[in-house]
Amino acid sequence: MNIEQYRNYCIAKKGVTEEFPFGETTLVYKVMGKMFTLADIELFESINLKVDPEQGAALREQYTAVQPGYHMNKKHWITVIMDGSVPDKFIRQWIDDSYQLVVSGLTKKQQAELLLL
């Protein structure tokens, strides 16, 4: 997966915005104002994803390219090194999982608003 495939996949999700709150090179995707993934757009060496703590631990054990979230809460975030060792279909699934995890944590009102978009 390259940066354009990553961007296109993330921005196509319902209620998603693309932002740069941490500087010019850190691209952040949010759903209803809540972050679910981010990446450096200049290097695109890795992406950070929100995870269920148990899933994150399992993925770190299974894949050497999956590490504790860089500059993030290590329990709730993972960093996936984009070295080609993880198939794109898994990365897309993990992006979906991250998105759904954030959506499930939204208020009922925000979830209802998201359905209307």
Score class of each variant (00 low, 15 high):
residue 1 M to D: 05
residue 1 M to L: 15
residue 1 M to T: 08
residue 1 M to S: 12
residue 2 N to G: 12
residue 2 N to K: 14
residue 3 I to A: 07
residue 4 E to C: 01
residue 4 E to V: 11
residue 5 Q to N: 07
residue 6 Y to I: 04
residue 8 N to M: 07
residue 9 Y to C: 13
residue 11 I to M: 02
residue 11 I to T: 11
residue 11 I to N: 01
residue 12 A to L: 09
residue 13 K to A: 10
residue 15 G to H: 00
residue 16 V to E: 08
residue 17 T to I: 10
residue 17 T to N: 11
residue 19 E to K: 08
residue 20 F to T: 10
residue 21 P to L: 07
residue 21 P to V: 03
residue 22 F to I: 06
residue 23 G to T: 12
residue 23 G to F: 01
residue 24 E to N: 15
residue 24 E to Q: 12
residue 25 T to G: 00
residue 25 T to I: 01
residue 26 T to R: 06
residue 27 L to N: 06
residue 31 V to Q: 14
residue 31 V to R: 07
residue 32 M to L: 08
residue 32 M to A: 15
residue 33 G to S: 09
residue 33 G to F: 09
residue 34 K to Q: 12
residue 34 K to S: 04
residue 35 M to T: 13
residue 35 M to A: 11
residue 35 M to C: 10
residue 36 F to N: 06
residue 37 T to V: 12
residue 37 T to W: 04
residue 37 T to H: 06
residue 37 T to I: 04
residue 39 A to I: 06
residue 39 A to S: 15
residue 40 D to I: 04
residue 40 D to V: 03
residue 42 E to M: 09
residue 43 L to E: 14
residue 43 L to C: 06
residue 44 F to E: 05
residue 45 E to S: 14
residue 46 S to N: 11
residue 46 S to Q: 11
residue 46 S to R: 08
residue 48 N to P: 02
residue 50 K to V: 13
residue 50 K to E: 12
residue 50 K to A: 04
residue 50 K to N: 06
residue 52 D to L: 08
residue 52 D to T: 03
residue 54 E to I: 10
residue 55 Q to D: 07
residue 56 G to C: 05
residue 57 A to D: 09
residue 57 A to S: 14
residue 58 A to R: 10
residue 58 A to Q: 14
residue 58 A to V: 02
residue 59 L to H: 00
residue 60 R to H: 02
residue 61 E to Q: 15
residue 61 E to I: 01
residue 61 E to W: 01
residue 61 E to L: 13
residue 61 E to R: 14
residue 62 Q to Y: 01
residue 63 Y to M: 02
residue 65 A to R: 03
residue 66 V to M: 02
residue 67 Q to Y: 04
residue 69 G to D: 07
residue 69 G to T: 00
residue 69 G to Q: 04
residue 71 H to C: 02
residue 71 H to Q: 11
residue 71 H to I: 03
residue 72 M to D: 01
residue 72 M to W: 10
residue 72 M to Q: 03
residue 74 K to G: 04
residue 74 K to A: 10
residue 76 H to R: 01
residue 79 T to R: 12
residue 81 I to K: 15
residue 81 I to A: 06
residue 82 M to L: 14
residue 83 D to H: 11
residue 85 S to M: 09
residue 85 S to P: 09
residue 86 V to H: 00
residue 86 V to P: 00
residue 87 P to L: 00
residue 87 P to V: 10
residue 87 P to K: 15
residue 89 K to R: 12
residue 89 K to C: 09
residue 89 K to V: 13
residue 90 F to A: 10
residue 91 I to C: 05
residue 91 I to F: 05
residue 92 R to Q: 14
residue 93 Q to L: 13
residue 98 S to N: 01
residue 98 S to T: 08
residue 99 Y to E: 08
residue 100 Q to A: 15
residue 100 Q to D: 06
residue 102 V to M: 09
residue 103 V to G: 09
residue 104 S to V: 01
residue 104 S to T: 13
residue 105 G to R: 15
residue 105 G to C: 12
residue 106 L to D: 12
residue 107 T to L: 00
residue 108 K to H: 09
residue 109 K to I: 10
residue 110 Q to W: 03
residue 110 Q to H: 11
residue 113 E to I: 08
residue 114 L to C: 12
residue 115 L to V: 07
residue 115 L to M: 13
residue 116 L to K: 15
residue 116 L to R: 14
residue 117 L to P: 00
